[in-house]
């Protein structure tokens, strides 16, 4: 009951265009999950594995990596560590996230909804109410679509293995880029982001997945001066 009321008020806070955008992103995640489910069963995993992992982990790249490593005969310990390394970016994401989680049991669920898309939707909003609504709508949408897509993909098997043909792999970076662009109109932020991205790209040649993205944070000192210059605040 509370959940229904909560979802209703989240939905009403968003504009029609925002609802449509969030629905599109959730559906795109669902279609990506088709290939995840299909790859999992065709690499020899039982059907329950993607169905257990999708709602409990809800982090696509880590799950693909897990399935890839164990499916190729690698050790589960290595797969867990590799997945955790990829997911470590949630720590800095959580530090940057505005206060969107709420209190009590909502906070427990809200924490689970943190992912690239929900964070970027929250950061892209102009006020706190919208941020919270966008975060929850996107997070819940993905929490439903990711496991549902994985189930469908696992059931359909290799028939849907290649979703790349639809350009779906271009959609994830395009979504992030479209939502993060307003923040990049600030010169200082743009310079720092470009330096970080260049560092990460260079690092993909030598470091395992997950680390290059974290290494991008080494560019953050470039933003130090700009961070001190922005709107004057009363000294503590």
């Amino acid at each position: 009951m509370f959940i229904v009321l909560g979802v209703h008020s989240i939905w009403r806070t968003l504009t029609r265009a925002q609802r449509r955008d969030i629905a599109l992103v959730s559906m795109a995640v669902g279609v990506t999950a088709l290939s995840y489910g299909a790859i999992a069963v065709s690499s020899g995993f039982p059907l329950w594995l993607p169905l257990l992992m999708a709602p409990l982990v809800v982090a696509g790249s880590a799950e693909f990596l897990f399935v890839g490593i164990v499916g190729a005969g690698g050790s589960p310990v290595a797969a867990v560590l590799a997945g955790l390394l990829v997911n470590a970016r949630h720590i800095p994401f959580g530090l940057a996230l505005p206060d969107v989680l709420g209190r009590g049991w909502r906070r427990l669920l809200g924490t689970h909804l943190m992912n690239d898309e929900s964070v970027v939707f929250a950061l892209a909003q102009s006020d706190a109410r919208r941020s919270r609504a966008a975060y929850w709508a996107c997070g819940l949408g993905i929490l439903v679509c990711w496991p549902a897509g994985a189930l469908a993909g696992a059931a359909l098997g290799t028939a849907v293995r290649d979703t790349d043909a639809f350009g779906l792999d271009a959609m994830f970076p395009a979504v992030l880029l479209a939502l993060v662009l307003p923040a990049l109109r600030d010169r200082g932020t743009l310079r720092t982001a470009l330096a970080g991205a260049a560092l990460a790209l260079a690092a993909t040649l030598v470091l395992p997945p997950g680390l290059p993205v974290l290494l991008a944070l080494a560019a953050l000192p470039l933003a130090w001066r700009a961070a001190g210059r922005q709107p004057a605040e009363a000294p503590r």
Binding site: R89, P92, F93, L95, A96, L97, D116, V119, V120, L123, D169, A170, F172, P173, L176, L177, V180, A183, L184, G188, T189, T192, A193, L194, G196, A197, A198, L199, A200, L201, T204, P212, V213, L214, L215, A216, L217, A219, L220, A223, W224, A226, A227, Q230
Partner: peptide, 19 residues
């Protein structure tokens, strides 16, 4: 503000590496 810039930098790095 640095933490928020940090999230933007992480997202930019994710965009670059996944693209």
């Amino acid at each position: 503000r640095l933490l928020e810039t940090g999230a933007v930098v992480l997202l930019a790095a994710l965009i670059a590496t996944t693209a």
